[in-house]
């Protein structure tokens, strides 16, 4: 056993909180998006930790699927950000407050 499971989960929780901080703290849509990636990775870390400590492959399958989801999400999300920038000339989320296209 390399490290106790508690440490892995605490680490994952702190990493998730850093991601939450990024989403709340920053106004740049790209950095908010990166913070969402950090949160996804925090969950992945917890899943890998549990998978290791219960010696079960299921957690790693979930991580695999979350990675697929993250790739799809980044592609679509960045396309939306580029489309927004074409419309509004900004990626500051406080200035993007109208639904009208």
């Amino acid at each position: 056993m390399v490290v106790p499971l508690e440490h892995v989960i605490i680490l994952s929780g702190i990493l998730f909180a850093i991601g939450v901080l990024g989403v709340l703290f920053r106004r740049n849509a790209l950095v908010i998006f990166m913070s969402i990636e950090i949160m996804l990775n925090a969950v992945n870390l917890a899943l890998v930790g549990f998978s290791r400590y219960y010696n079960s492959v299921d957690g790693q399958v979930f991580v695999f699927l979350v990675m697929t989801l993250a790739a799809a999400e980044v592609a679509v999300g960045l396309a939306i950000i580029v489309a927004l920038f074409r419309n509004k000339q900004t990626v500051n989320v406080d200035e993007i407050n109208l639904m009208k296209g």
């Binding site: 390399v2 490290v3 892995v8 790209l30 998006f33 990166m34 990636e37 990775n41 992945n44 890998v48 930790g49 998978s51 290791r52 790693q60 991580v63 695999f64 990675m67 993250a70 790739a71 980044v74 592609a75 960045l78 950000i81 580029v82 920038f85 990626v91």
Partner: peptide
């Protein structure tokens, strides 16, 4: 270190490779 070898490789390939290149492209584009 948690003995998830395949996922470690995927992490570097998918995240550090593909996703971050996409991010950098968009940052430089905008």
């Amino acid at each position: 270190l948690l003995e998830a070898y395949f996922l470690a490789v995927l992490e570097v390939l998918v995240y550090a490779g593909a996703i971050m290149v996409l991010f950098l492209f968009v940052i430089m584009l905008l």
